[in-house]
Design a binder for these strands. Structure first.
Lengths: 223, 223
DNA sequence: ACTTTGCGATACGGGTCCGTCTCGTATCGA
DNA sequence: TCGATACGAGACGGACCCGTATCGCAAAGT
């Protein structure tokens, strides 16, 4: 199917400190610059609004100023390349700051807001949704490496809120998570034109969700 | 660019009562069966999980048991066909029932929940999000014909709630809409595995959003 | 009867893409 | 120095696709 690259015994695509341990390579070493150029080209193409199906190896190679062989030497096919791009793309999760649960929620929502402003992440967010249906490998990588840790972070904060008595304990934790992050995801992923500039947006969202959008000033809370 | 079909003066794709008014066609009339077969084929392909870029005219024609020319006689290109498919796909909006604002919100959310269970709509929901980036015409048709009326329905209900004093008036109407429909959209569109079966889900979501997920029983509502 | 149009099928030119392969050259270890 | 491997460039075969055109036949009007 695919000509096994000589380096593959070390773990594909990894040339960290482990490389010299298992394969004291003989010939000319692979160009780090070429690799960076490939990643940069993919990200540039994403940023320019290309859809997943428009990201052909040929286009990527041309944009990177690189021969196709240089790509195929590193990844067996398009999927593998994009999976690695996905893995590299995401910025690190915001660390728990030790503040209030409300503050943590605001931080998380605001992190998502800012990320919605960054084109590259936005491309990936959107592409992750539909195109990946036809691409289980890519979809799974994205779910595993991006979605899952974020959902778990949200769950952890919500659980802490329940434990501390700040959040209602009669609701499903999942449901609370969805209510907290649903609105910001709606804006940052689903609706293109929605404004994300307001730096207070996260705070407004979290407070509205915490206090409820219903107008009853005090009574009748448990339906 | 494209050989104008003879029928086009009547409005493409429409062969209702208007047809005989403007063009007492001469030769063999177009086969209604072929048209239905084409629509059915596209929807079947969608349902089978094909992505937008996999929906080629050739594939559609083969699946419909129809010649390519029969498709190109009706639509000038792939986009036009898919735009019409999108237009046909959506089920009618739920009508206002005259109930409480809360009941209306529950009805709307529950409608979205049920729709999330229907595969065809789900395909379109998901594809609408990313793949259509590369396809402005299709995206616009979807936004105009599907998204917009739903957002307006939501806005109308929320405004009524504000007028009746059931919803907080100190919040942006858009924000309230997002908080109400964000969670259900999250489940029905973004997360594949999320359960949508619980018939009480809509009620739970709406009530949680109305009452707030914060635990404070009465005090400290305005942050 | 005769024309007009639609039908399914299929051939066609032109295009993009994939993944492999071969050039001539560059850079490493031995 | 020499073999091994990398590099950019691009040719190559095969696949798929688009949109048009052409078959022979079918169904309608005049």
């Amino acid at each position: 199917m695919h000509t096994e690259p000589t380096v593959s015994a070390c773990g594909a695509g990894e040339d960290g400190p482990a490389a010299e341990l298992c394969a004291p390579r003989r010939g000319r070493p692979r160009s780090e610059a070429a690799e960076q150029a490939i990643f940069a080209a993919v990200e540039d193409l994403m940023e320019s609004g290309k859809s997943l199906s428009e990201l052909s190896i040929e286009r990527i190679a041309a944009a990177a100023g690189v021969g196709k062989a240089t790509i195929y030497r590193r990844w067996p096919n398009k999927e593998a390349l994009l999976v690695e791009v996905v893995a590299r793309l995401e910025s690190p999760l915001p660390e728990p700051s030790g503040g209030t649960v409300r503050e943590e929620l605001v931080r998380m929502v605001d992190y998502m807001r800012k990320r919605g402003l960054a084109k590259r992440s936005r491309w990936m967010l959107k592409s992750a949704l539909s195109q990946m249906n036809a691409w289980p490998e890519l979809r799974e990588a994205y779910q595993e490496q991006v979605v899952k840790p974020r959902r778990e972070l949200a769950r952890a904060i919500v659980r802490r809120g329940v434990d501390e008595g700040v959040l209602r304990s009669d609701l499903d934790v999942e449901l609370v998570c969805e209510i907290v992050i649903g609105p910001i995801l709606l804006r940052s992923v689903l609706w293109d034109e929605a404004p994300l500039d307001d730096p207070d947006l996260a705070e407004q969202m979290v407070d509205a969700v915490l206090n409820g959008v219903g107008a009853q000033p005090s009574g009748g809370r448990s339906r």
